[in-house]
């Protein structure tokens, strides 16, 4: 009975060997490449991220831009997965008055909620809308004492009690998110939060959840400073795109190939100047 040796296995081996320093004093430059040809726009990354990070509705670290262009029947539909770009030159961090946002391990733009004063300058500065403000205590949907059928179905609070989950969390709360100095078990009102490249998983030699979750192997992750890494192989082969290059943020999240693969019937067009 053999198991697949997969792309995930290969990248995980690389991640296990990373030496990360929480103050960012390491030589690691973590990058993520998204292969749009492999991406099928299914959203498994989004749901995996939501579940991993105990995110409530409306807070999605992993998200998407969808675009439909053209006119029937010559229409294109494109799905672009998005997440925090962990910018080399992060406007969120440089504009943060308390340095709650800073460059941490592997070049990840980290956020320290203990320093955050909820001023939201980072949200204004981020050109990608990837910083989320917690406007309320988390998971209000689970703070509910109503059942749709009394005594026949449960209330959210009853269900949480049944499975032994307390706090502002869903019943399927993921405790593995609690690990590490800057992780709070759940979050609280008034501070912002953002994607951390699942640093809590990296520290255990695991890939970010979205990378592992993708059934199409469309996300490749690793250290740009390691010449043998998978990310380098791909970044060498294809000239990658980034989102909003003109902003000069130098994202670590890069895109290769095209979502709309496929071919077309060859031809040179026509010199249509009209009459």
């Amino acid at each position: 009975m053999t198991e697949h040796h997969s792309l995930d296995d290969e990248m995980r081996t690389e991640v296990e060997q990373l030496q990360l320093d929480e103050n960012g004093d390491d030589d690691v430059d973590l990058n993520m490449v998204i292969d749009l040809q492999s991406c099928t726009g299914c959203g498994a990354c989004n749901i995996g991220c939501a579940q991993e990070n105990n995110l409530q509705e409306g807070v999605a670290f992993s998200s998407r831009i969808v675009e439909t262009d053209g006119q029937f029947p010559n229409v294109s539909y494109e799905y672009t997965p998005t997440l925090c770009n962990q910018c080399e030159d992060a406007p969120c961090a440089s504009g943060c008055p308390t340095s709650a946002l800073y460059e941490g391990e592997g070049g990840i733009t980290m956020h320290d909620p203990d320093q955050c004063i909820g001023c939201k300058y980072c949200m204004i500065n981020c050109p990608y809308d990837e910083i989320h403000l917690h406007k309320e205590d988390p998971h209000p949907r689970w703070d509910d004492d109503e059942a749709v059928i009394d005594e026949g179905t449960a209330t959210p609070t009853e269900l949480k009690a049944e499975v032994g989950v307390d706090g502002d969390a869903p019943a399927y709360y993921n405790p593995n998110r609690e690990v590490g100095e800057h992780e709070h078990p759940t979050r609280f009102k008034g501070v912002v939060e953002k994607c951390t490249f699942c640093v809590h998983r990296l520290n255990k030699g695991e890939l970010p959840r979205c990378v592992e979750e993708c059934p199409c192997d469309a996300r490749i992750f690793g250290d740009r400073n390691d010449p043998d890494s998978k990310v380098n192989e791909i970044l060498g082969r294809y000239n990658p795109d980034v989102l909003k290059e003109e902003e000069g943020t130098e994202p670590k999240v890069k895109y290769v190939r095209d979502y709309n693969g496929g071919s077309y019937e060859r031809g040179k067009g026509e010199p249509a100047l009209g009459d």
Binding site: V148, A154, T155, P170, Y172
Partner: peptide
Amino acid sequence: LYDPDRLKQPM
């Protein structure tokens, strides 16, 4: 699985 609206009991 963890849906509060799930039937928990015969009715």
